[in-house]
Design a protein around this nucleic acid. Structure first.
Lengths: 338, 338
DNA sequence: TTGAAAGCGCTAACAT
DNA sequence: ATGTTAGCGCTTTCAA
């Protein structure tokens, strides 16, 4: 239910105009920094605004101009630094423009994502940036019907709703597998989040697996868990995994947090890394390199992807032609854990 | 500069009204779920909206009602789980209401915070939630001049702008110090972020110190660093600290991430925890309990504080009387690191 | 360089 | 239970 608070009666342009002895239009022009306003007039008006404590009403502005300045951004979670760095990138890309991001959290739930898209659309944002390429058909339809630019970021797809900036998750898995195969490892296991929750991780896992298959190898065990986040997941389930497939040489983890947790267990239990078990993962988060034994991982360019996404949106808003699909790449980081 | 995109001409209430054969007012009522609309009419209108793909224009709505549905939330950073959990709590508190949070990031910069407050005020949010109690005088003035409720969260203060939900950071430091003194530790050092950046941490440090003073003890060394975040900070600077004050028994860290990093170094360097050096900190984050040697820390109720903040805002919006200052408390968690 | 008039799309307040 | 009227505070468009 909406509240009972008194409507926020605040100053209007008109009162500023009166104080400055000009028309509302002049004040409006000063406000937006557009057109030609005489330097004196501008200064006088600014002084009055400051004096009265006037705050530009963007609601009225957006309505009159039928043009918002918000960029709707939807991420699955803020619990992972992966997404907060993405947001930082977007913020950087939007810096010094009139646009600002408005963040929505879908909790890895596509229905919720749809709700958020719908709710945000009510504010007529100038553009959308969504993490991931998987959405409800209805979400896609809504977004396609909308004139504003839409960027899907993090994963790569051939058929974006509009624009896509991402990395080939499958390939990231494959490259890591090949790296490990080159080191003559033969016995592999997988530890991570439930595939239905984290689709990117699932793609990496599949890519990893496909590389193994080429050598007639497969995971000896895949342990996926649904209810825990990163570190705890690794810490609590690593022993189960090791129990389930004794003699396994490498545990490929769905991300660095899981790998860090797995390493915590090994340190605790006195299991030698990488001699007894090797660890590899994905993300390139701070924790991977800060661990006593730095983790071999793949760094994804989160910040850069965020920045690129913002730039694509801006370009489109300026009527420029925009590359539909951009592969942002990744980088294998060799630690000492494998 | 704003872009050149075509204004987002979308469907209006009027077209839905025409299609459903009712007045715009009826559509508006259906949209907001208010008043009495005949069940049939409501169904018919809803069908038309669905059919045409109409999306409620909240900009026009907010203008007409001079009442927004956004709650402006400003946190210093999203890099720490402390703030993302706070946001999750706020989201939980706002769940099933018409209100939604809009997030701003100040980067621990009070000037930037002021800019964000000003920008957000342009959207006439129904309420504000700010992390921390330190703000520019101008920020306070802006907020006070505004009719909407303002919650300051995380820290405690006697003189909130409006409402305060927090914990006594000083006391958290004091309690930890007393806990360690009880264990007969005598030689202490501090490792953390620069005091000017993280004020809460600084308050804890002072509280800790005041407890030491009562026993005629003081930190033998305080190492504060400005340019690194949590884990790396601990990992990289722990050796410097140990070098600077050999024989120190306890290192009190500004938060769990720092302590985790410090522990990483010790594990790496073969320094026995807690025999050779004990570690204590603050936050109660996942990583603290997942470390090979669980860290002795103080858990702050982030989620709960977020939820409480949202509830206070809602209560005020409903015209209810609201407790001005709420101490959310904290909990000492004994690990094995001290 | 500045101003006057006409709405942007919706909702409050009042009819009916 | 539904409709009518008059704005919300700004910007667009056109005129001076």
């Amino acid at each position: 239910m909406a509240g009972t608070s008194k409507p926020n009666k605040s100053l209007t342009i008109e009162q500023v105009a009166a104080a400055a002895g000009v028309s509302t239009m002049t004040v409006s022009r000063v406000l937006r920094g557009t057109d030609n306003v005489a330097a004196d007039t501008r200064k006088k008006v600014k002084a009055c605004m400051e004096e009265l404590g006037y705050v530009h009403n963007k609601i009225a502005g957006a309505l009159a101009a039928s043009q918002g300045t918000q960029i709707a951004v939807i991420v699955p979670s803020l619990d992972s630094i992966v997404f907060t760095e993405l947001l930082a990138g977007i913020a950087a890309g939007l810096n010094d423009t009139v646009y600002q991001q408005v963040i929505g959290i879908s909790d890895y739930d596509l229905e919720r994502e749809l709700d958020i898209v719908r709710a945000m659309m009510g504010w007529r944002p100038a553009g959308f940036i969504l993490a991931g390429t998987q959405h409800m058909p209805k979400t896609k339809r809504l977004l396609e019907a909308n004139a504003s630019p839409v960027v899907e970021v993090m994963e790569l797809t051939r058929n974006p709703i509009d624009i896509c900036v991402g990395l080939d998750q499958r390939k990231a898995g494959k490259v890591m597998a090949e790296h490990l195969l080159n080191k003559s490892y033969k016995r592999f296991a997988y530890l991570g989040t439930d595939h239905t929750i984290d689709r990117s991780a699932s793609l990496r896992c599949k890519g990893f697996q496909s590389a193994l298959h080429k050598h007639d190898i497969d995971f000896e065990h895949q342990l996926t868990v649904s209810d825990l986040s990163g570190i705890s997941l690794g810490r609590e389930h690593m022993p189960h995994l090791l129990e389930a497939c004794k003699g396994v040489e490498v545990v490929y983890c769905s991300n660095d947090a899981v790998a860090a947790g797995a390493m915590m267990h090994c340190l605790y239990a006195g299991i030698d890394i990488p001699k007894k078990v090797a660890l590899a993962s994905f993300s390139g988060m701070e924790i991977a390199s800060a661990m006593p034994i730095p983790i071999t991982t793949v760094r994804s360019p989160r910040f850069e992807m965020g920045k690129l996404s913002a730039e694509r949106v801006l370009a489109r808003l300026q009527g420029k032609k925009v590359t539909r699909v951009t592969d942002a790449g990744f980088e294998l980081i060799e630690g000492l854990s494998a």
